[in-house]
């Protein structure tokens, strides 16, 4: 439980950080909250020779509204997400999800950027970002590019992020006022990653669903956007038959690992149950 030797860098601008990443290639890793990276280093599952601490870069902080989007700086902590009045009003599902991540000590330090850049299927924010159709702003030696959260994840710990790139911000289109939402997470205890979790955002028109978006956490080696399930529910009245079909469609795309949280079959079924419960709660919350 002791990390290998490394050199510590603390740049004060994105450009400076990118320059350090460029000069060390895969031997360098950005460090934000460190609550995923440092444990990996202690287990010597990661052994970066250069750590590029992003804490000194003021530009990576903050939550703002810009047109139809909300933009959240990569270094915004999970605790800041919970306490943001803007998010509570416009994107309450972020607060709900953040409160289910780890424990207060970790949330004071762990960041949104680290959580989504990490590529661990157990992280909660990636599926939520897919549900919200967010995109990630990546800064590299050749400037900035944007990648949709739904396109970002390739496999466990493999993402579209290049070694010399930094994730600087997350851009989220604001869902319509009065939308219903829920993040349902089954976990063994406080501080545990999900056995399975489901994020749902929907809007209702009278008794029928106008729009629906669903994503799942920790039931595959990447977060899963459940497009088919979302499509099945759109236009429906959330009757039990349609929900059954949607749940089956969502379960069908899962491919969880068997681990101490339970065998694969259980985790798939739990993704279905979490989805059902999230749908019920989201529908209750939606304006009609």
């Amino acid at each position: 439980m002791i990390p290998g030797e490394f050199t510590y860098h603390r740049p004060s601008s994105v450009a400076e950080a990118v320059a350090i990443l460029v000069s060390h290639g895969d031997e360098a890793r950005p460090l934000s909250g460190g609550h995923s990276l440092i444990p990996m280093m202690k287990l010597r599952m990661a052994a970066p020779e250069h750590l590029v601490d992003l804490a000194g870069i003021a530009d990576l902080k903050g939550i703002s509204e810009s047109g139809d989007n909300i933009v959240i700086g990569a270094m915004t902590t999970q605790n800041e997400l919970i306490n943001s009045a803007l998010l509570t009003e416009k994107l309450p599902i972020i607060r709900e999800t953040s409160l289910l991540i780890a424990d207060p000590q970790i949330r004071y330090v762990g960041t949104l950027g680290g959580n989504v850049a990490n590529g661990d299927p157990g992280n909660d924010m990636p599926a939520l970002m897919q549900c919200l159709n967010a995109s990630y702003v990546l800064a590299g030696p050749d400037g900035e590019r944007e990648v949709a959260a739904r396109e970002f994840y390739e496999a466990a710990y493999f993402t579209a992020l290049a070694p010399e790139e930094l994730l600087t911000a997350v851009k989220i289109p604001v869902p319509p006022a009065g939308h219903g939402f829920a993040y349902e997470k089954l976990k063994r205890k406080v501080g545990d990653y999900a056995t399975a979790a489901a994020a749902v955002v929907l809007t209702m028109n009278g008794s029928s669903v106008d729009f629906c978006s669903i994503a799942l956490t920790n039931v595959s080696d990447t977060p899963l956007y459940a497009g088919d399930a979302s499509a099945i529910l759109t236009g429906s009245t959330l009757d039990s038959d349609t929900i059954k079909r949607a749940v089956a469609a969502a379960e069908a795309i899962t491919d969880p690992a068997s681990d101490a949280r339970g065998p694969a079959e259980y985790r798939t079924k739990m993704a279905g149950i979490m989805l059902q419960r999230a749908l019920t709660r989201a529908a209750e919350r939606a304006n009609r």
């Binding site: 424990d103 063994r188 205890k189 406080v190 501080g191 545990d192 681990d259 101490a260």
Partner: peptide
């Protein structure tokens, strides 16, 4: 504490080994 069929010890960290918090 469990073992797989190769004798690998599973769950030997507080990630999996259940120590309840005040919440549970």
């Amino acid at each position: 504490i469990t073992y797989d069929e190769m004798g690998n010890v599973m769950g030997a960290s507080f990630m999996d080994f259940f120590i309840p918090t005040a919440v549970e």
